Amino acid sequence: MNFASDNIVGASPPVLQALTQANVGAMAAYGGDEITRRVKARFNEIFEREVSVFLVTTGTAANALALSSAVPPYGLCVCHREAHVIDDECGAPEFFMHGAKLAGLPGVGAKLTAEGVSAYLRGLPRAVKQMPPKALSISQVSECGLVYDLGELKELGDLCREHGLAFHMDGARFANALVSLGCTPAEMTWKQGVDILSFGGTKNGCLMAEAIVVFRPELAESLDYRSKRAGQIVSKGRLISAQFEGYFAGDHWYENARHANRLAKLLSAGLSELPGVRLAWETQANEVFPIIPAAMDKALKEAGVLYHPWTELSLPAGETVGPNEALIRLVLSFATREEDVHRVLAIARSASSRQAAE
């Protein structure tokens, strides 16, 4: 029972079927094929406007290249201090930005607020010695499983316009956030001021497919060249595009995200009923962050349940993890089985009962 992440499982059947079909015969290389043309047109439909789309193989490539198009080498990109771009990508964004910096700010649940970002920007000295802010990057879903609602996104978008910042969204779990909010892709992005998006597919059913979606045309001008220099213009590009074709067909991507989110709610509700268990943050997408007794943590691990411990850095005010407690992350995916969720809950209940009897 593996709840370590949503990128530990393979591709979903419709994606694999589309790949198998695309594998037959010869097609133009380097994205010049008909499948890629269809997929790029589909992105236009999804976002209700013409967009520039650059297909890449990893989320790190999508984030690093997206930010490199928005931030010059002397510039600053503001993000949360636990954001994936600053904490989990081995300096790739700074590398591809050719020396630009990421500035990590605090925020409960790994989310930024317009008020907090504004205060930080106002406090920056205006001198050549200080790198000027050029972009804001947020994770949707955040690293603590929280979703920015449309009002929060609009406030951040308005702030970016006020300060002349490019607004980047790391959408590794884009579909999970989308179904959580019940809105359209357009409403969650450019209609709230997002300029450039890292559109994730790998965590939600693709084998290895991500996209950079650009809403502000000038940010797209250099991305073909940047992608080539980064080794992300793939000769058999149709095999990336085909994954998205299977992913989007019949709204399969929505179905996958709804499944993962539903099971996360089921697991979250079940754990929350147990004595000594509380949620560090509300379950809003496909990740659950419970604070559990150490004995329950031990029982789950001994039963073969796989998951990661999590950082306490962005806990709400007044919340702490005690010496006999553990804060853990459990991630649900499109491939998670409901029976495995019930098995985890049964193990947790048994551990709770044993502890109560001692």
Rank of each mutant, 00 (worst) to 15 (best):
W281P: 01
V305Q: 03
E115I: 10
L263P: 01
N261K: 03
Y307H: 10
Y74E: 12
A220D: 06
E325C: 01
R81V: 15
P106F: 00
F334H: 14
A280S: 13
I86G: 12
C90H: 03
G157R: 00
M188L: 00
F215Y: 05
F199G: 12
A61M: 13
E255C: 13
T20D: 13
E34A: 14
D33V: 01
C90F: 03
V85W: 05
A70M: 15
K134F: 03
F289Q: 10
R122H: 12
A114I: 00
G201Y: 01
G107E: 09
V288M: 10
W310P: 02
A249K: 06
L19I: 14
K129T: 13
G10Y: 04
E255V: 14
F334Q: 12
N204W: 04
D340A: 08
A64I: 11
F95E: 06
G157H: 00
A356L: 11
D6V: 02
D170N: 15
F289S: 11
P72N: 12
S137M: 08
Y74I: 07
E255T: 15
A26W: 09
L279E: 10
S314L: 04
A280K: 13
S118H: 09
L239K: 02
D6I: 07
A127I: 01
E339A: 09
A257W: 14
A11C: 03
D33Y: 00
F54Q: 13
K129R: 10
E325G: 01
A280M: 13
I328D: 07
R37M: 04
L55N: 06
A249C: 06
G123I: 09
V341E: 06
A92Y: 00
A26P: 10
V331F: 04
F47N: 05
R38V: 09
F47P: 03
P316V: 02
L219S: 11
E245S: 06
A357L: 08
T311M: 09
V39Y: 08
Y254P: 02
K236T: 06
R122S: 14
L279H: 14
L105P: 15
V288T: 08
C77G: 02
I35R: 13
G31F: 12
R173S: 15
P132F: 03
A326W: 05
G91E: 07
Y225R: 14
V214G: 11
I291W: 01
T311I: 05
E143H: 14
S272K: 11
F244N: 01
G59S: 12
L271V: 10
D297G: 00
L267A: 13
K154V: 02
L146K: 10
L102A: 13
S180I: 01
P133L: 03
Y254S: 03
A269W: 10
E255R: 15
F43V: 07
A22E: 11
S268V: 00
L55S: 05
A260M: 11
L219T: 09
P316M: 01
G116Q: 06
E287Q: 11
G32F: 02
R226E: 04
A172I: 08
A110D: 09
V51K: 09
G164Y: 12
K40W: 04
L207A: 14
C144H: 13
A135N: 05
A4V: 11
Y74W: 07
K101M: 08
V234S: 00
H308E: 08
Y120M: 03
I233R: 09
K134T: 03
